[in-house]
Design a protein around this nucleic acid. Sequence first.
DNA 1: GTCCGGTTCA
DNA 2: TGAACCGGAC
Length: 305
Amino acid sequence: MSEDATLSDLDPEAVRSALVEWYEADHREFPWRRTTDPYEILVSEVMSQQTQLDRVVDAWAAFLDRWPTVDALAAADRSDVVAFWSDQRLGYNNRARYLHEAAGQVVDDFDGEWPRTPADLQELMGVGPYTANAVASFAFDAGDAVVDTNVKRVLYRAFGLDDDDTAFEAVASELMPAGESRVWNNAIMELGGVACQQRPRCDEAGCPWREWCHAYETGDFTAPDVPTQPEFEGSRRQFRGRVVRILGEYDELTLDELGPRIRVDYAPDGEYGREWLRGLLSDLADDGLIDVEDRDGTAVTRLRE
DNA sequence: GTCCGGTTCA
DNA sequence: TGAACCGGAC
């Protein structure tokens, strides 16, 4: 699907401002979101690629405590940097080496003057397209749209794109408000991080794109990085448990509201759709756990009193 | 035991 | 294009 066909019937300004306002109203606080120092940003990005964000917080602070500036890192012994990385259990020890080497490049090749554009930043060792855009955005507010797996998942679901990197790139940059890469890339990655996760939390997180979202409309929350056949083992029992747990959190739900919360590949008319869900629910009803009621042709279910 | 991730290198 | 890197979550 091309971006024109996908986005033509949307008001891009409304889509943009909805996301930015959602982000600005409330988001997770990470210490690296309070700095625009490119060195500090680069360290946080390299760490974040491989490690859960809450673990990065401590490692990032410790790293900057030990090597507070790019000059300090460039002057350090490589072995000390690698040893630190290993001690912090950051994985991929090569990245410590890359980071050290990148610091040397900034000092020597760029005379201590940080490259500011994604293209120039990519000359640094260990800095690929993702990291270059992240640093350009968060340090200099001069990046292009970031496309990582979170962003792909968001775009794939919201706009029904194909799983195709060219399409993701095109839509991502068309969507990004010009010159606002800092807030935009923070916002769209926050959306992927707290709302549009592998298991979607559209309502819980108050996703600002629900009114436009293709997946929210169809109930099909598949995504490139989401396994299409979750948990083959114990499937039925596992899904019965999920139904009861989810219904405990809600008063009542229609099939299409419940389905996506049970399994991310729920699609109303798909293999795991209304038919499949009805079968599951009738077993649970037979066991006296839930009630299923037809209301104006729509099945509604709730826990039995 | 399997999967995840951005980059380098062959 | 795909293997390799590494530790944690599940």
